[in-house]
């Protein structure tokens, strides 16, 4: 028998050039909440964030919503980014908001890294994945040594 489940669903759109907007929803046996996060490229700066708590455990949890503002102007991938979110949005607010925000930020980053592949490949059929990844590494230097693809 299942005793616990958690689902997170994220969608990323690009309403304007160099802007990525993520909408994330978290739903589990205990909590339900959602976030809208705006990130400006190419420096991955968080420029906007809004959140809503739908199902929580205490009468104090709603006070975590304004703490989302602590993420504004942080840049995804900057030094100690995850710790800064966990402290400023999580510990000072709600750890589940921080968890969902990090999920949204990772989704934005994945889109920024790989989202251009299809169009570039259509323009240039000879483009290899290896050369595409090298270009991405030049554009996003903190990818270096982040995983076996970039080492």
């Amino acid at each position: 028998m299942l005793s616990f489940t958690r689902t997170k669903v994220i969608g990323v759109e690009s309403p304007k050039e160099n802007i990525l907007l993520a909408h994330g929803v978290l739903d589990d046996n205990i909590y339900a909440m959602e976030l809208d996060v705006e990130v400006k490229l190419p420096d991955f700066e968080i420029t906007g964030i809004q959140g809503r708590m739908k199902r929580t455990t205490t009468a104090e949890c709603w006070k975590a919503v304004p703490k989302l503002g602590n993420a504004i102007s942080l840049r995804i991938g900057e030094e100690r980014f995850i710790s800064k979110i966990n402290r400023g949005v999580g510990k000072q607010g709600c750890s589940h908001f921080a968890n969902l925000l990090l999920e949204c930020c990772d989704a934005i980053r994945q889109q920024a890294i790989y989202g251009g592949w299809r169009k570039l490949k259509e323009k240039d059929a000879s483009l290899s994945k290896e050369s595409f990844l090298k270009e991405q590494l030049k554009k996003i230097p903190d990818l270096k040594d982040s995983c076996l693809l970039y080492s």
Binding site: S3, F4, T5, R6, T7, V9, I10, V12, Q110
Partner: peptide, 27 residues
Amino acid sequence: DYTRCKHASIAELEENSLLVRVAVEDT
């Protein structure tokens, strides 16, 4: 442009253990 769904579940096994499943599917 991009979608992600991540789902985790915990099931109680009879032999005093938990079965933890996590799956992600994105673009």
